[in-house]
């Protein structure tokens, strides 16, 4: 393996994209099916999802070698990346429309626009939520189609990513529901409290589900016949990633918030610390998965690149510049 072709911005992008998708998906469900009529309490979560999408897109584009040509993603038919970009744009546009519909609550100057959009706000969120779901699934499917990478090429990965995305979305909604620009009323406060109660349970379920999928995936790879996948999984189970995996992801990112959710009631541990830990765990998951880009080795390849790559950064690579004669 030479180096990681996809660097941290991509992992962040996958995390933020999934997070935004999760927020929109949950917001849409709650707004349309659980407690209709309190749309303003989801303005803040939607805003956060927009910020996530924006930051994610910035990371995505700066990772491109030729960012100026990014528009070309919409020029082909087959590429799965094209679908991702499309979902992202549609979700973002409708989320923005939704947000604008409630913006007048903080900034009355937007009242005419908001009044215009408000009747369709629920529809906007439904659309955004649907494409949010697409984004969540896309982040996992995109990796899992790259069959050169044994650790990614598994149906478990999209499932894991989707669960994790909803779970982190859940955490983000918990932290942000009812916030600016909503004009809080007693009613909406109650609605928000209801949502929080439900989300509390939902996230417990999601964290447990994520734990099951994650352990199933990693441990089954660790016992698998595919040497590449096994090697990668062993790195997670008892290799260089073991500390991050067991302590960081499983314990702090999943088990601790799970215990807080279950035992914490309405304490700050349960309503603030646990969601933050879930978010951190989700982020860590993306980093670790993206970095586990092991490809089956062609015999001798590692030995070759180990030697050649020790050139990187050595003085002789930059000492002489053609055209600038020294003597």
């Amino acid at each position: 393996m030479k180096h990681h072709y996809w660097e941290p911005p991509i992992a962040l992008y996958l995390f933020l994209g999934g997070l935004a998708g999760g927020i929109l998906f949950l917001s849409a469900i709650f707004n349309s099916f659980v407690i209709p009529g309190y749309g303003e309490i989801f303005a803040m979560p939607v805003l956060i999802s927009l910020v996530c999408v924006a930051i994610g897109c910035v990371f995505l584009i700066i990772d491109l070698g030729q960012p100026g040509v990014f528009w070309r993603v919409w020029t082909t038919a087959t590429s799965i990346i094209k679908w991702g970009a499309t979902f992202l744009v549609i979700a973002a546009v409708f989320a923005l429309l939704y947000l604008l519909a409630y913006l007048d609550q903080a900034w009355p100057i937007f009242a005419p626009l908001s009044q215009l959009l408000l009747p369709a706000a629920d529809f906007f969120l439904i659309v955004a939520g649907f494409f949010g779901l697409c984004i969540m699934m896309y982040t996992g499917i995109m990796l899992s189609t790259l069959k050169a990478h044994a650790f990614w090429a598994t149906p478990a990965l999209p499932v894991l990513f989707t669960i994790s995305a909803i779970s982190t979305g859940c955490a983000a909604v918990v932290l942000s529901i009812g916030g600016w620009p909503a004009q809080i009323t007693l009613e909406s406060l109650l609605a928000a409290a209801l949502v929080l109660e439900i989300l509390h349970i939902v996230d417990i379920v999601l964290v447990i589900a994520e734990l099951i999928v994650l352990l199933t995936m990693v441990l089954s790879f660790a016992g698998a016949g595919n040497v590449t996948a096994k090697k990668a999984a062993m790195r997670w189970v008892k290799g260089s990633y073991a500390l991050l995996f067991w302590v960081g992801m499983v314990f702090i990112g999943l088990l601790v918030p799970l215990m807080m959710y279950i035992g914490g009631g309405h304490s700050a541990a349960s309503t603030v610390v646990a969601p933050i830990l879930v978010l951190c765990g989700g982020c860590l998951l993306r980093f670790m998965v993206v970095n586990t880009d092991d490809r089956a080795d062609i015999p001798g390849e590692i030995r070759y690149y180990n030697r050649v790559l020790s050139s990187n950064g050595q003085e002789f690579t930059t000492k002489w510049e053609y055209g600038k004669n020294l003597f």
Binding site: Y5, G65, V69, R72, A148, R295, I298
Partner: peptide, 28 residues
């Protein structure tokens, strides 16, 4: 036409593609 999104780099089972890290940051 290349964006250098590196999805193809990751798709190749032989590791036979890459973008340089030693070129102009905006034109890799």
């Amino acid at each position: 036409k290349c964006l250098s999104c590196k999805v193809c780099v990751n798709a190749c089972p032989y590791g036979m593609r890459d973008a340089s890290h030693m070129e102009n940051r905006m034109h890799r």
